[in-house]
Design a protein around this nucleic acid. Sequence first.
DNA 1: TCCATTGAATGGGTGATCCATTTAATAATT
DNA 2: AATTATTAAATGGATCACCCATTCAATGGA
Lengths: 288, 288
Amino acid sequence: MNTKSSPRSSTRPRLASLNRRERAPDHRAAGAPAAPQFRPIHTRRAFEEICERIREQLALGVLKPGDKLPAERDLAQQLGVSRNVLREALRSLEMAGVLRLQKGVKGGAFIREGDTSRMNDVMRDMLSLGTISVRELSEARVHVLDLVVRLACANVRAAHLDALEANVARTELATREGRLLDRVECSREFYKLLAAATGNKVIAMIMDSVTEIHMRFVYAKVASSGVAMARLAEKRRQFLAALRERNVSSATRLMRTHLESVQRMLEQDPGAMSLHVALAEVQPGFRR
Amino acid sequence: MNTKSSPRSSTRPRLASLNRRERAPDHRAAGAPAAPQFRPIHTRRAFEEICERIREQLALGVLKPGDKLPAERDLAQQLGVSRNVLREALRSLEMAGVLRLQKGVKGGAFIREGDTSRMNDVMRDMLSLGTISVRELSEARVHVLDLVVRLACANVRAAHLDALEANVARTELATREGRLLDRVECSREFYKLLAAATGNKVIAMIMDSVTEIHMRFVYAKVASSGVAMARLAEKRRQFLAALRERNVSSATRLMRTHLESVQRMLEQDPGAMSLHVALAEVQPGFRR
DNA sequence: TCCATTGAATGGGTGATCCATTTAATAATT
DNA sequence: AATTATTAAATGGATCACCCATTCAATGGA
């Protein structure tokens, strides 16, 4: 039995607004198309409500990057929830790349600049969960890269070309010194720079997300078999030349044939390659 | 003063593995390319470690969709952390679409089928945070849609065509009955079906993520101004005919001109359109 | 002027406790 | 025997009251 009389029933007008809230009815218009029976209603929980409210303030422009939320203890009281629940919400938003939590006096929960690498995580989870396949990802990458090359030819600027040039120089150096894994890291960077050269952060984000996983496979392959893409730096220089003269067809063709040879490299001795190995392996430069 | 003697120092060999863990040194190879000074080290926190371990089990294939994690109380003890911290981790994974938490006996934390709509959230957050712009998103959508049309022409199957046909029929009905917002909902569905017709879930996911936000704008525009895209169903039928005969150039051209007219519609009287309104407005069919 | 000390604010983390929901086992009723 | 209530246990949801570690400004001494 619970002998100690509940010390809480007295001081608890709190959750009136947040907790135990009646669910809003589904306002789907009467004649709505393709209404699939009823969508499952998952009970509204406090932390969801909190996340939503903060995101709402964000969408409304009330909160902007750099802004600081009230201290956990204060915000919890304002929202009428316990500190623990508030923290669940803040944690989720932190994982989502929306917040940055910082300790110490003058610390707090700050709205971050958007973190475009979040899309990588989504892609990786989808692959881990088996929702998408390596084949689909590779195919998507070919198409996206094709688009990226065309856009880069249209929009590339001197600064991008310089960065790419420097990257190829590093690739060449790594090749000469036999640092094969560093060369893979160079490749990863190359595609990131190329994506940035499109001048469109949405496209770049998409490109990065399909490239990141792909490069893990390449890394795992090179690490395990020691194979190396022949004449990589040379091919990069050719491509850069085409990009510099904004020769779309030439750049596209060079990239396509390169992708094909990479694909062949990955597919030889396929038994050694494993989705799980590539995903789970902790690799330098591949932050999780 | 803290009069009550700490009751914890005795029973706490727990965190040895998880908490207060020495950070692994950065094993970046010595001559690594483009090492940007030092990457900021953010203190390793328990919940991050937990998330990572669960994701690792996922990547390793030890955990699969449908599997159930141990009960919170048990898992917390196994990991040597408090239940509250474990919950922060589970919450984050739930928000990430990896887990589904279910109450009651026989409840627990289950590994979900991958939730492709997570990419939509990323896109929305990036827009809310100002990391990407509406212009970039629209531009990306044009290019992605172009790709989708080409792939759909190559891979569309009878079932897809039937679904699209049914969608257009609903569009026609909504038009006749003057249900403009339902027609927008039909459009949203149309693009989702088209994305699925590519036969590539990665491409489909990307397409959906750039479409979702766009359709919010269309919805907000139609809701506020009452304007309607002229001859929508007719245009859809023409496009479907081209898709059915796998006529890439025709389908591409039709889609492109349609996009242009939609863009013109959105841009007239631009003062009425607001990023914040479109993002924040709760709309039927637009789950958050 | 510079450096060490201190203390308050803040996020990180713990453990105990209660509530609400769900399900299966059990008892009561027809 | 079949059906319907009741009960009990397991589980996630939430709260409270702490304590710890980090950070940084204020303070004070050399």
